[in-house]
Protein backbone atom coordinates (compact mmCIF):
# COMPACT_ATOMS: atom_id res chain seq x y z
CA UNK A 1 0.00 0.00 0.00
CA UNK A 2 1.43 3.38 -1.05
CA UNK A 3 1.76 6.50 1.08
CA UNK A 4 -1.17 8.89 0.56
CA UNK A 5 -0.81 12.57 -0.35
CA UNK A 6 -2.86 15.49 0.98
CA UNK A 7 -2.74 19.03 -0.41
CA UNK A 8 -3.74 21.88 1.92
CA UNK A 9 -3.90 25.40 0.50
CA UNK A 10 -5.56 28.63 1.60
CA UNK A 11 -7.25 28.56 -1.81
CA UNK A 12 -9.47 25.66 -2.90
CA UNK A 13 -8.55 26.50 -6.49
CA UNK A 14 -4.84 26.11 -5.77
CA UNK A 15 -5.39 22.87 -3.83
CA UNK A 16 -7.54 21.34 -6.52
CA UNK A 17 -5.16 22.47 -9.24
CA UNK A 18 -2.18 20.89 -7.52
CA UNK A 19 -4.17 17.67 -7.06
CA UNK A 20 -5.04 17.71 -10.77
CA UNK A 21 -1.36 18.00 -11.66
CA UNK A 22 -0.49 15.10 -9.37
CA UNK A 23 -3.19 12.91 -10.89
CA UNK A 24 -2.09 13.67 -14.42
CA UNK A 25 1.66 13.41 -13.85
CA UNK A 26 1.75 10.58 -11.34
CA UNK A 27 -1.47 8.66 -11.85
CA UNK A 28 -3.84 6.81 -9.60
CA UNK A 29 -1.46 4.64 -7.56
CA UNK A 30 -1.49 7.00 -4.61
CA UNK A 31 -4.34 8.03 -2.36
CA UNK A 32 -4.85 11.74 -2.95
CA UNK A 33 -7.06 14.37 -1.34
CA UNK A 34 -7.07 18.17 -1.17
CA UNK A 35 -8.76 20.93 0.76
CA UNK A 36 -8.70 24.70 0.80
CA UNK A 37 -10.69 27.61 2.17
CA UNK A 38 -11.67 28.61 5.69
CA UNK A 39 -14.85 27.36 7.44
CA UNK A 40 -16.81 30.31 5.98
CA UNK A 41 -15.65 29.67 2.42
CA UNK A 42 -13.07 32.48 2.26
CA UNK A 43 -9.33 32.07 1.78
CA UNK A 44 -7.87 30.10 4.67
CA UNK A 45 -7.81 26.57 5.99
CA UNK A 46 -10.11 24.48 8.15
CA UNK A 47 -9.06 21.84 10.67
CA UNK A 48 -12.22 19.88 9.94
CA UNK A 49 -11.60 19.87 6.18
CA UNK A 50 -7.94 18.90 6.69
CA UNK A 51 -8.98 16.00 8.93
CA UNK A 52 -11.48 14.83 6.29
CA UNK A 53 -8.84 15.05 3.55
CA UNK A 54 -6.38 12.99 5.62
CA UNK A 55 -9.10 10.39 6.16
CA UNK A 56 -9.83 10.31 2.46
CA UNK A 57 -6.20 9.83 1.43
CA UNK A 58 -5.51 7.47 4.32
CA UNK A 59 -3.08 4.62 3.86
CA UNK A 60 -1.62 2.36 6.52
CA UNK A 61 1.76 3.29 5.01
CA UNK A 62 1.10 6.88 6.09
CA UNK A 63 0.09 10.22 4.64
CA UNK A 64 2.35 13.08 3.51
CA UNK A 65 0.76 16.53 3.71
CA UNK A 66 1.82 19.47 1.54
CA UNK A 67 0.83 22.92 2.83
CA UNK A 68 1.18 26.47 1.53
CA UNK A 69 1.43 29.31 4.08
CA UNK A 70 1.52 29.67 7.91
CA UNK A 71 -2.06 28.90 8.93
CA UNK A 72 -2.20 25.87 6.65
CA UNK A 73 0.70 24.33 8.54
CA UNK A 74 -0.59 25.28 12.00
CA UNK A 75 -4.08 24.00 11.23
CA UNK A 76 -2.64 20.76 9.82
CA UNK A 77 -0.61 20.24 13.01
CA UNK A 78 -3.81 20.79 14.98
CA UNK A 79 -5.68 18.26 12.84
CA UNK A 80 -2.91 15.68 13.35
CA UNK A 81 -3.09 16.22 17.12
CA UNK A 82 -6.84 15.75 17.13
CA UNK A 83 -6.54 12.57 15.05
CA UNK A 84 -4.20 11.30 17.75
CA UNK A 85 -2.15 8.13 18.01
CA UNK A 86 -1.65 5.60 16.58
CA UNK A 87 -2.43 7.37 13.30
CA UNK A 88 -0.78 10.69 14.18
CA UNK A 89 2.77 9.36 13.87
CA UNK A 90 1.93 8.09 10.38
CA UNK A 91 1.11 11.62 9.17
CA UNK A 92 3.92 13.99 8.18
CA UNK A 93 3.92 17.57 7.00
CA UNK A 94 6.47 18.18 4.23
CA UNK A 95 8.52 21.35 4.48
CA UNK A 96 8.47 21.84 0.73
CA UNK A 97 6.95 24.06 -1.96
CA UNK A 98 3.37 22.90 -2.42
CA UNK A 99 3.27 22.21 -6.19
CA UNK A 100 6.73 20.73 -6.75
CA UNK A 101 6.66 19.02 -3.35
CA UNK A 102 3.33 17.32 -4.08
CA UNK A 103 4.54 15.98 -7.39
CA UNK A 104 7.88 14.75 -6.02
CA UNK A 105 6.21 13.20 -2.98
CA UNK A 106 3.53 11.50 -5.06
CA UNK A 107 6.08 10.20 -7.56
CA UNK A 108 8.12 8.69 -4.74
CA UNK A 109 4.97 7.31 -3.07
CA UNK A 110 3.77 5.71 -6.29
CA UNK A 111 6.93 3.59 -6.30
CA UNK A 112 6.07 2.21 -2.89
CA UNK A 113 8.61 4.23 -0.86
CA UNK A 114 8.06 4.50 2.90
CA UNK A 115 6.74 7.74 4.43
CA UNK A 116 10.17 8.99 5.57
CA UNK A 117 11.55 8.67 2.03
CA UNK A 118 8.50 10.35 0.50
CA UNK A 119 8.88 13.30 2.88
CA UNK A 120 12.66 13.52 2.40
CA UNK A 121 12.25 13.56 -1.38
CA UNK A 122 9.77 16.45 -1.22
CA UNK A 123 11.99 18.30 1.23
CA UNK A 124 15.03 18.08 -1.03
CA UNK A 125 13.32 20.95 -2.86
CA UNK A 126 13.46 23.22 0.18
CA UNK A 127 16.21 25.75 0.63
CA UNK A 128 17.87 25.15 3.98
Amino acid sequence: MNVGIVIVSHSPLVAEGVADMVRQMVGDEVGLAWCGGDPAGGLGTSVEAITAAIDKAWSDAGVAVLVDLGGAETNTEMAIEFIGEPRASLIAICNAPIVEGAIMAATEASGGAPLATVVATAEELSPL
Binding site: D38, P39, A40, G42, G44, T45, S46, V47, E48, G70, G71, T74, N75, E77, M78
Partner: peptide, 15 residues
Protein backbone atom coordinates in the same frame (compact mmCIF):
# COMPACT_ATOMS: atom_id res chain seq x y z
CA UNK B 1 -12.02 28.57 17.97
CA UNK B 2 -9.64 26.07 16.38
CA UNK B 3 -12.43 24.67 14.25
CA UNK B 4 -13.98 27.97 13.16
CA UNK B 5 -11.36 30.74 12.94
CA UNK B 6 -9.62 29.43 9.82
CA UNK B 7 -6.43 31.50 10.06
CA UNK B 8 -3.36 30.76 12.15
CA UNK B 9 -4.88 32.69 15.06
CA UNK B 10 -7.49 29.93 15.53
CA UNK B 11 -4.99 27.25 16.56
CA UNK B 12 -2.98 29.81 18.56
CA UNK B 13 -5.77 31.36 20.65
CA UNK B 14 -7.47 27.95 20.71
CA UNK B 15 -4.32 26.33 22.08
Amino acid sequence: LVMTVGGASGPLVGT
